[in-house]
Amino acid sequence: MHIAEGFLPHPWWEIWFALSLPVVAYGIWKIKKAVRLEPGIKPTLALAGAFAFVLSAMKIPSVTGSCSHPTGTGFGAILFGPSITAVLGFIVLLFQALLLAHGGITTLGANTFSMGIVDPVIAFIVYKACTKSGMNFYSSVFLASFLGDIATYVTTSFQLALAFPAAVGGVFASFKLFFAIFAVTQLPLAAIEGIVTAGLFKYLKQIRPDILTKLRVEGSPQVTESPHVAGDAQ
């Protein structure tokens, strides 16, 4: 995603800023509250940020004015929920816009909306739905980050389509075209993101089972019954 600097014309970049900033503000408030209640989550919070940093740096060229890469925000969404992840996404995008000319300041709102808000929301909902339906923990994590990643590109295509409707067929035709180009590069990338996220969760469960309990991530019986958690209880 990362719509390039200046690629969203007048009404649109303000609209996406207006939609993203309240969520980011709410997320900052949530982070403050969560850290006050549980100061031990700080390193894990930074881990989620670093993970998004690493994954969103792996870009390959795609549509003009944008690019393709994994987002890495599904990890934070499963751990901390969407609004806190929106703040992490915002910080990552701001750094990349200023230091790497990757994305941009004017398109920051739109990029935060797709990578920092829609992706975590979808990942969070999918994760909750999967674990509720009794699915294996790692499969749920994979699906959540996979679908969250795809949702990011659906959103970016939609943002570009709204700003650049096709001469024939309007916004919808334009959307289909953008998404068709994104899909080629994004389906494998989303699968990679899903696998990496599930792997990181496996590691997190081995080294810090306490944090998963604290953040109430382990909603599934699969995790509570796991020998790691049971063995590490004391």
């Binding site: 200046g6 690629f7 014309p9 007048h10 003009t64 004017t106 409707p165 001469a167 334009s174």
Partner: peptide
């Protein structure tokens, strides 16, 4: 299909 964004007609308004 989409005039403007890729044929170089669209000039980013901010660099």
């Amino acid at each position: 299909q989409i005039g403007g964004i890729s044929d170089g007609q669209y000039k980013p308004w901010f660099t």
